[in-house]
Amino acid sequence: MLEIKDLHASVNGKEILKGINLNIEKGKVYAIMGPNGSGKSTLASVIAGNEVFDVTQGSITLDGKDLLKLKPEERAAEGVFLAFQYPVEIPGVSINNFMKAAINEQRKYRGQEPMPAPDFLKLIKEKKELVALDKKLDGRSVNQGFSGGEKKKLEVFQMAMLNPKVAVLDETDSGLDIDALRIVAEGVNKLKSEDNAFIIITHYQRLLDYITPDVVHVLYNGRIIKTGDRNLVLELEKTGYDELKKQADELYK
């Protein structure tokens, strides 16, 4: 469904991604692990279309469509979702207005009429329950004054509202206590279907105790240096990244 081929990307002339190849299939969960500074968040940002990064080589396609030619909002309407590592506070913009704008602009892009208000309210109620979003957040501005856990839950809530084909979760487990972690994981597990795929970017195995990945990639220094199944997670937990890093440094020196 999502194909990434030989992707190179840089920021301020510094190359961060040095040839990424990924084939994301429907109905599967992918984990991308790796030490800090390996390029995990850059990969997430480039998929979503953050213009801070320059793609210098390679391609990203979603169901054959060239994503690199699309604006971030067009990619979203095509079915790409990024759960941010650091969700942004938007003072004065309520969660409901934000979601209404997002859903209706996506529908407009797809040539659909705006969602009727009763359907929207029903949807928002249903999805708030899915992630156990606190009632006290109703009517609040997007992410403003939210705790770390609340921000991450709001990311999963938005994902549920927008129902993407491919969701990239960038370090969604960072800054979460165990209860919030479980709610986020349950949210993802409930949203998982035969028609969508998840890319879970994480530093630790913690979130992967709750969401079982089908494929695990290890990213280091802008390249995928190892691929395996869920057992790779446990292996890494035991051995750490050092041995893999050494092998990769040897290979690409």
Binding site: G49, E73, R75, I90, F98, A102, E105, L162
Partner: peptide, 12 residues
């Protein structure tokens, strides 16, 4: 904030 909104499908 603008990129965050655009990543949700909201135009610039």
């Amino acid at each position: 904030a603008i990129f965050y909104m655009r990543s949700r499908g909201i135009s610039q």
